[in-house]
Nucleic acid binder design. Structure first.
Lengths: 184, 184
DNA sequence: ACCGACATGTAAGCTGTTACATGATTCC
DNA sequence: GGAATCATGTAACAGCTTACATGTCGGT
């Protein structure tokens, strides 16, 4: 999936230091990276070495020195090429699926407990994301295209959770129905 | 996410060799592993070493020798413990999101082309999965709980793709609308 | 004096992938 | 003889994570 191009994409909207990018990755639900130092600082060095990003050392009046990176002309060209290459399909990583495949070793009550706990977990995450979204709503407000794309991508992870909740509802209904039915 | 417990889960429904499991992982959309030798054979050795699975070398009348693994009592206990532990939330890996965040460097026409290509890619994958589902529909037919859980989990990846298609539709509509609108 | 935020970097390790290596057997 | 399927395993490497290491600055 290439974190290098993702960073290049973020640099296309402005200049950032590794520390800045770290926070972006840590707080973003849409970008599936933890935002750990190792990857980010190494990728920035790499991008600079390849001439796709330029580095400027800033010594602010207050605080420690920071290395601020900007996208270069070559970087923009590489970014555009990546953007227009064949897009990949999305992938779902749902550990619950692996559990459900094996869940036949559980009793009816145990399976019910597992599904109820999963429902709780989903609800909690949804509430958390909704709260985050509400708080950051102001920062990406705007009627320009960049703001629109930002909002639409920001909402995608929440949409997944809501759909997972709906799917779980169907499962619980189907399982309950099967358990109540007399064995044929 | 632990491929070890996932394999243990598969063993809970019957005895399989590494080669069998390899095919299961390669063909399953719900289990996010490629089914490469390295992981599977090493994990089986590990499960055997820990006493969670037993190994039986079979020399069939035809073909090469195979090592068939079965779950042990300890394995079943470990599996049940894993199943009842706190379930994790699903995670979406959608490379398109990283692109859209950077897509403001594209012209209106280029963005439109990208979204159209993504729509084509999704359609293709959906048709492929639907075909797969139709063909395997017979093999997991049954009114017992294991078959029900199998069917419900098998359908989940297709549901994601359909939702992604619907989401993409909304995006394309919003982008088109913005482009037609006179700049304020 | 210490804690927390700012800021950059490295080490060690786990997970996962592709590709390689070996060998039996069956079908054309 | 060669390709395809069955079957087990190893090597090399890419990707990603946690934890460690170092240092500045401001507030309590």
């Amino acid at each position: 999936m290439s974190i290098a191009f993702t960073i290049l994409g973020l640099l296309s909207a402005g200049s950032w230091s590794g520390y800045d990018l770290k926070k972006v990755f840590a707080e973003s639900e849409s970008l599936p990276w933890s935002g750990n130092n190792n990857q980010i600082y190494k990728t920035l060095v790499e991008l600079h070495r390849e001439g796709l990003a330029s580095q400027e050392v800033q010594q602010p009046a207050e605080g420690p020195a920071r290395k601020v990176y900007s996208i270069t002309k070559e970087g923009t060209a590489a970014l555009r090429e990546w953007l227009m290459s064949a897009p990949e399909s999305p992938q779902l990583r749902a550990p619950i699926l692996a559990r459900l495949i094996a869940a036949d070793v559980l009793s009816a009550e145990e399976l019910d407990t597992l599904l109820a706990r999963y429902a709780d977990e989903l609800r909690l995450r949804i509430l958390g994301l909704e709260e985050l979204q509400r708080r950051s709503a102001g920062s990406v407000a705007g009627s320009d295209r960049r703001a629109l794309l930002q909002r639409l991508t920001d909402e995608r992870p929440l949409r997944l959770l809501r759909d997972e909740e709906a799917w779980l509802h169907e499962i619980r209904w189907a399982v309950t129905k099967l358990e109540k039915e007399p064995r044929l």
